[in-house]
Amino acid sequence: MSMTRAEVKITVAKLIEASYSKDKGLTTKIMAEKGSFKLTVDQSGTATLSGNAGVLTFSGTPTLEKIGIKVKRISISFENKGEMNIGYSATVNLAVISLTVNGDFDLEELITSCSGLLCSAARALKGRNRAYEAELESIMGR
């Protein structure tokens, strides 16, 4: 199978983390404001997080490389419903098919997941870390 339900959800989490690594303050500002915001990644790997509080551009390439399949585009619509609860709808456009998944997550839980030294190392690995991905999957909702 190309890309599973879990892999799409984990990709959403990893893109948010990449945004957070680029600029903690602006990422949090955009995501913590009540209302809608969006995250897109184009074919070249350029990612953009945009909302009422601002716009942040960062590289989605490391995340795309870990997927291991050619991605044409990723588009995620978020809705901050209040009290750190965020709903999302993500579409990943591959060469032939598109995959869409919806879910909810707690923003604080995602940001504080795996923040220790060991997990920083896990994130830095070029390959995939199963325990880390399992944690992300459970945060991003079933």
Partner: peptide, 8 residues
């Protein structure tokens, strides 16, 4: 065009 929707 093909859309796969992971329904909740």
């Amino acid at each position: 065009e093909i859309g796969v929707l992971f329904v909740n």
